[in-house]
Amino acid sequence: MSSTEWNRRSFLKVAAAASAAVAIPEAALSQPPSESRLPPTSKSIRLKVNGTAHQLTVDTRTTLLDALREQLGMPGTKKGCDHGQCGACTVHVNGRRINSCLTFAVMHEGDEITTIEGLAEGGTLHPVQAAFVEHDAFQCGYCTPGQIMSAAALLREPIGPKDDDIREAMSGNICRCGAYPNILAAVKAVRNQRS
């Protein structure tokens, strides 16, 4: 690869590989690195993301969002407001959607974390992803991973059948381009397929 072929994503991948985070096989995880040399404000933790366990050392201040993006090289989850006001950072923890910017990575050992990178199965888009493509449910795309993760979780939640129920359930994801009509159409289409 010549230097001109470097793009942002491949740079992030290399940067992540160079950091302390590594994906390791289950067997090797039985002995996490000794904590004795770490300061009390750092911790060695094991995070399970999209079915793969990762051992990493984090400053305790690291949010789940920053651990995913900066240490595990998964930039699909977006940082918008970083204060729980926009929903761009939405991921699933144990099957439920949360704002990954408002929780510390050290609080999620033993949890099943799913990000936008892990939503498609075996190369097949998740129905919500396919519906977003079909209904052109985005413009700039920055809020889209969060919108899709929210919509995928919404399918399992006890919400009503009306358009307004979808609007209310999706209100935690802000789209500054204003792609809401098409987002609504995409979510509706997936719900109709399933009912």
Binding site: G84, G87, T90, R96, R97, I98, N99, L102, T103, S150, A153, L154, E157, A169, S171, G172, N173
Partner: peptide
Amino acid sequence: GASAQLRNM
């Protein structure tokens, strides 16, 4: 109150 994500937390 809040959003579905925040209510889950």
